[in-house]
Each structure stands twice: as C-alpha cells, then as structure tokens.
C-alpha cells in the first residue's frame, strides 16, 4: 500500500512536475485546437463529395481514399510521414507532420460521419428547397449541411474526443504534449508518479465529455418510443 503511494501518488513529485505537465497539457489542447477544425473541414468536404460525385471513377477513388485511411493505423501514418519524408529531401517540422497525419486520418472518419448525416436528410427537404428556387449549392449550405450536422452531433462529439486522445501519439515523435512531458519526467525522477498525474489530467479533461456523450448515445440509438 505504501509502495503504491510512493510510486504512483508521490505528492512532492507531483508538486515539482505539475508546472511542466500543465505546459504539456496546454500543448495537448493547442494541438487539438489545431487538428480538430482541419479534420472537421476535411471531413465535411469528403462527406459532401460522397453524396455529390457522380462519376464512377471519382467515386471509386474517394472510396479507396476513405478505406485506406480508415485501415491505416494513425501511428503508422504519422511515423511514415515524419521519418519517411526526409528521404525525399523534405524536412517537415514536427507540428506539420503531426497535423498532416492527423488530418488525413480524421478526414476519413469525420467524412463517414458527415456522409451518414447528409444521407439522413429526407429528400423532401431538398425538393422543397429546390422548388422555391434555391440552387443546389444553396440547398447544400442552408438546408442539408445544418440538418446533417444536427443529426450526427453525438458521433461528431465522440470522434472529437478520440482526436484529443489521439494527440498522445505525437509523443512518439517527441512533441512536448502532455504524455511526452510525463514520460521524460518519469525518466528523470526514476518514479512513475508523473505518468499517473498525467493520467489524472486526462481524466479530468475527458471524463466529463465522456459522460455527456453517454447521454447523447442512449437517446440516439433506437430512435425512441
């Protein structure tokens, strides 16, 4: 019992590493704030293309793109971009590699979510809009996308939580986000308390979101009575 406290809940170490972990947390949040909007935008584009592309080859290409990035593990993609591109003579800054990697991965997940959302908007809505003279693009912007987004809000939130968790992968390329800082602190102090503290930070950040999401998910699934 005493061992557990000394190794996992070592208060003096907590106090010493807290400032560094907080900076790491900030980086995690900044990284998330950067990646999420790009992912959403790319995903929306993919979703819109999924329902508007008519050409068979274009659709096939899009399907391949989506399935490739759903199949490729994000860490593999990240390592590939970060360590592979120097061989082409490009020196990508860490942040850019991470953002590109995450964006490619997210665009397919968010893309599938938006596609399902757009498909769930009843045809009658589109017919009504077009018959009042709105163009296809206007209908898309003012009718389809807003309704689609509302319909799949739980999935969007769920995926966004996943993206925040995904930032820990950046530690593999030594970006100073929360997990990386905790790992380095652990080596320095020869004590795993920093990692436990980092875990606590993640819980504080994400547990409320997970709880909120549970509420949504239960309402959404069966369509109610």
């Amino acid at each position: 019992m005493d061992e557990i406290f000394k190794s996992f809940f070592n208060i003096p170490i907590y106090i010493e590493v807290a400032p560094y972990l907080l900076k790491g947390l900030l980086n995690t949040l900044l990284l998330s704030a950067l990646v999420i909007p790009f992912g959403l935008a790319a995903g929306l584009l993919v979703g819109v293309l999924s329902i508007t592309l008519k050409n068979r080859w274009a659709r096939a290409l899009l399907a391949i793109y989506i399935d490739v990035f759903r199949a490729l593990p994000p860490l593999v993609l990240l390592i590939f971009i970060y360590y592979g591109t120097p061989f082409l003579g490009w020196e990508l800054p860490k942040l850019l590699a991470v953002v590109i990697g995450f964006m490619l991965n997210n665009s397919s997940y968010y893309g599938e979510i938006f596609r399902a959302g757009l498909e769930s908007v009843p045809n009658g809505q589109i017919e009504a809009a077009r018959s009042t003279g709105l163009s296809a693009t206007q209908t898309l912007i003012h009718i389809q996308i807003p309704q689609a987004t509302r319909n799949v809000m739980p999935d969007l939130i769920s995926n966004t939580i996943e993206v925040i968790k995904l930032t820990t992968l950046a530690s593999a390329v030594a970006m100073p986000e929360l997990l990386r800082v905790a790992r380095d602190a652990q080596s320095l102090f020869y004590n795993p308390s920093p990692i436990v503290l980092a875990a606590i930070f993640y819980l504080l950040l994400l547990w409320p979101l997970v709880r909120l999401l549970s509420r949504f998910e239960h309402k959404k699934m069966g369509g109610g009575h």
Binding site: K165, L166, T168, L179, Q186, P192, I195, A199, Y202, L203
Partner: peptide, 15 residues
C-alpha cells in the same frame, strides 16, 4: 473510455 490507450499501455508497462 476517457484515458488515451497509450497512457494505459505506459502505465501498465512502465509504472
């Protein structure tokens, strides 16, 4: 569901 999987792996392996 809140903890990033990598954190859990590290806890089990390093801590």
């Amino acid at each position: 569901r809140a903890l990033p999987p990598l954190v859990v792996i590290m806890m089990l392996f390093f801590a």
